[in-house]
């Protein structure tokens, strides 16, 4: 066995030098894979809906499959986006107070955006 400078406890915890493990990396990949079919479905759908009026769009969104797929697209999309923006902010904003405030604002905004999307979709699904 080759010598390792890592302690036995450190190896078991698997959090690495940054102390955060692979959770961020893994979530980014999971959402990326989910977004491959969802994005293709979305682009095809938007092309089909080009120039449609509100009645047509709402009727289409109220169909269970489309309602579910749009919910998954927006959910996975926002999660993927906030993971990516987090890295961008961490890379470019060097002043710690600004970085922490920026990260907090971005994370709050992501949750708010997801809430608006969920309420809108549910409203369309229930009331049309």
């Amino acid at each position: 066995m080759s010598a390792s400078l890592r302690t036995a406890l450190g190896r078991v915890r698997g959090l690495g030098s940054a102390g955060e493990g692979t959770a961020h990396w893994w979530a980014q990949r999971l959402t990326a894979i989910a977004l491959v079919p969802l994005t293709l479905w979305f682009v095809i759908s938007v092309v089909m809906l080009t120039g449609a009026g509100r009645g047509e769009v709402v009727g289409w969104l109220a169909r269970p499959f489309n309602f579910g797929a749009m919910g998954l697209l927006v959910g996975a999309g926002i999660h993927h986006a906030q993971l990516g923006l987090q890295v961008v902010i961490e890379d470019y904003v060097h002043a710690e107070p600004v970085r922490v405030a920026g990260l907090m604002a971005m994370k709050f905004a992501a949750v708010l955006l997801a809430l608006v999307a969920a309420v809108s979709l549910l409203s369309i699904f229930v009331r049309g």
Partner: peptide, 19 residues
Amino acid sequence: GVALVAGLLALVYWLAAAA
């Protein structure tokens, strides 16, 4: 990726407007 964040904002705005 950053541009698509703006696109995501536009998509949610579009959904909210439809609702």
